[in-house]
Nucleic acid binder design. Structure first.
Length: 530
RNA sequence: GCGCCUGUGGCCCAAUGGAUAGGGCGUCAGCCUCCGAAGCUGGAUGUGCAGGUUCAAUUCCUGCCAGGCGCACCA
């Protein structure tokens, strides 16, 4: 945030450095638990106390004295509370400066310029069938994490790793071939462990009518096009579609195996070729070439991660399903073995999704509920919203009935209702242009409380960015909407006299900017009318 | 057996090791001559169990109990 909070973070950081010769890089301020604690709260004194074995209250009052002399005009008061919190109450003029800053710079007011290069790989579902509701969560969370990183200035490449080589696709193609036989009235048998679903018949039908030369490539492209169609409805796009087959064709797997071999980390046992993963913290050594001569999926994954690192990425983020948790150390050990810091890879496990609904969704026998069914049931915005309401590591129960509920029970409606109420005030007032010279007329408790809430968007963004948890944006939106609705009940806008009306229209415009900004980060269209 | 996730009022969820454990649903009592009552205000109900580390534990560690999911020369 360009306003007060960033300024004061720097000042406090400098004081701490000078007084205690300690550099603290984590966020120095956060939103206090309760409003009567102030606008900003810092726990640096507590941190310093445990580090330096000193009394936190003593440190806090020392810091307070230094702070007071440096930021007198911007601060109403600074309080020290046990066991050592430093709480700041921002002065009215500083609040109004920030408000004017939002009106002037819009979204840019909250942006950062952190400039890491991040390769964000998510979804990467096998192209052997339609996307399920579990895939949907990975897709939406991945997309929103990308948005948040970009908002803070990171250069993000969204990447889908297509498993276009290997046994699963082979099995799928075999299953399609059998279905083609079925259509042609021949004897057919779905192979052991093959794909039984009805959707296989659809590909087969298209194959029969199109008569493609390369049936494998055609089926693959067809399945990918179905996946892309779902993603398009959700407003998700990928920058890269990385191909496993291409890694094989380019001999990249042999290359990484050679590197590992040169380091003495490859051995042969029972006709298979193994990587000594245990030397790098994994529980077991891992096979990279099976006794039948085929490379494992892990082998291409080593090459894939090496390839990503070689693209000059500062950070690799992978979103995986919970069934992959045991796989994390395996890949990290390989990254380490190739001579990189294993922390360049950050894996986020997206926990399971269950549907909760009284009525049965169009559930076809033998298949999981499809993402496309869910989207057509509740719509794009509700799908995105409810996929984000839990932390990544928590099981998510997607409440379909709630998502469809057009009432105050539904938090998405509660948020959207705020934005449409603002819009309807604008219409009533005939407001089009906003001139921030009027904001000086804002002085009531409720006016200032709403401004304070707008500024807390910074903390929500920071939390979401550093923890890679979009849920903090959702939580912020809910509290912002609540603050607005409260303001709406207590304060009138239209007909309050020229000066105050214009001032409050500005305040609502700033609220709208923040509301839209947060909704846009989540990929949800703000409602103007409901 | 080993590993991962989860256990918070009647129900659903919050709380980078810190302040009086927050909010929503439901419930009870109020608020529309006024920009949309899809809203607002105010009551009532609490951390699975047993230890440990710490000035401070919902949070970290150990054990147990309960639920979910993994543990391939599948991807």
């Amino acid at each position: 945030m360009k306003g007060f909070s960033q300024k004061i973070s720097k000042i406090l950081g400098d004081i701490v450095k000078k007084e205690y010769e300690v550099v603290i890089d984590e966020p120095l301020w956060e939103a206090p638990q309760r409003q009567d604690f102030g606008d900003l709260s810092s726990m640096v004194s507590l941190k310093l106390a445990s580090k330096l074995k000193k009394d936190p209250l003593e440190i806090a009052s020392n810091l307070k004295n230094h702070l007071e002399s440096k930021i007198k005009e911007d601060v109403e008061k600074i309080e020290i509370l046990k066991p050592g919190f430093i709480n700041i109450f921002i002065a009215k003029n500083a609040l109004l400066d920030s408000l004017n800053g939002i009106l002037k710079d819009k979204d840019n007011f909250f942006k950062r310029n952190l400039k890491r290069k991040v390769i964000l790989e998510f979804l990467s579902a096998n192209p052997t069938g339609p996307l399920s509701i579990a895939h949907g969560r990975q897709a939406v969370v991945g997309d929103v994490i990308g948005n948040i990183l970009e908002f803070f200035g990171d250069d993000v490449e969204r990447e889908y790793y297509v498993n276009d080589a290997g046994k699963q696709l082979d099995l799928f193609i075999e299953s399609v071939k059998e279905r083609i036989k079925e259509i042609n009235g021949e004897k057919f048998a779905i192979p052991e462990g093959g794909y039984q679903g009805e959707y296989v018949k659809e590909v087969a039908k298209v194959c029969v009518s199109e008569k493609p030369k390369d049936m494998r490539a055609f089926s693959l492209a067809y399945e990918l096009s179905l996946i892309k169609k779902d993603l398009e409805v959700l407003g998700i796009h990928f920058d890269n579609w990385a191909s496993q087959q291409k890694l094989i064709d380019d001999k990249k797997i042999e290359k990484v195996i050679d590197i590992l071999k040169a380091k003495g980390l490859i051995f042969e046992q029972e006709d298979a070729i193994w990587f000594s993963a245990t030397k790098f913290g994994d529980d077991k050594d891992r096979v990279i070439k099976k006794s039948d001569g085929e490379l494992t999926y892990f082998a291409s994954d080593i090459a894939y991660h090496e390839d990503k690192i070689n693209r000059k990425a500062d950070l690799l983020i992978n979103l995986w399903g919970p069934d992959h948790h045991g796989y994390i150390e395996r890949v990290k050990s390989a990254i380490n073995a190739l001579g990189h810091d294993k922390n360049i890879l950050k894996v986020i496990i997206i926990q399971l999704v269950a549907l909760k609904t009284k009525e049965k969704m169009s559930k076809r026998k033998g298949t999981a509920v499809l993402l496309s069914d869910l989207i057509s049931e509740v719509g794009k915005d509700a799908t995105r919203f409810y996929y984000l309401v839990r932390k990544n590591s928590s099981h998510l129960e997607f409440d379909v009935d709630l998502a469809e509920d057009m009432s105050f029970n539904n938090p998405l409606y509660y948020v959207q209702y705020a934005s449409s109420r603002i819009e309807s005030i604008f219409q009533k007032a005939g407001a089009k242009n906003f001139d921030s010279q009027y904001t000086k007329n804002l002085e009531s408790k409720d006016d200032l409380a709403l401004i304070r809430m707008l500024l807390q968007f910074s903390y929500a963004l920071e939390k979401a960015y550093y923890s890679l948890e979009p849920v903090f944006i959702i939580e912020y939106l809910k509290t912002l909407a609540a603050s607005f609705h409260k303001f709406y009940e207590t304060s009138r806008v239209v007909g309050e006299g020229e000066g105050l009306e214009k001032a409050r229209l500005n305040l609502l415009e700033a609220t709208r900017i923040v509301l839209y900004c947060a909704l846009n980060l989540l990929g949800i269209t703000p409602a103007k009318k409901m």
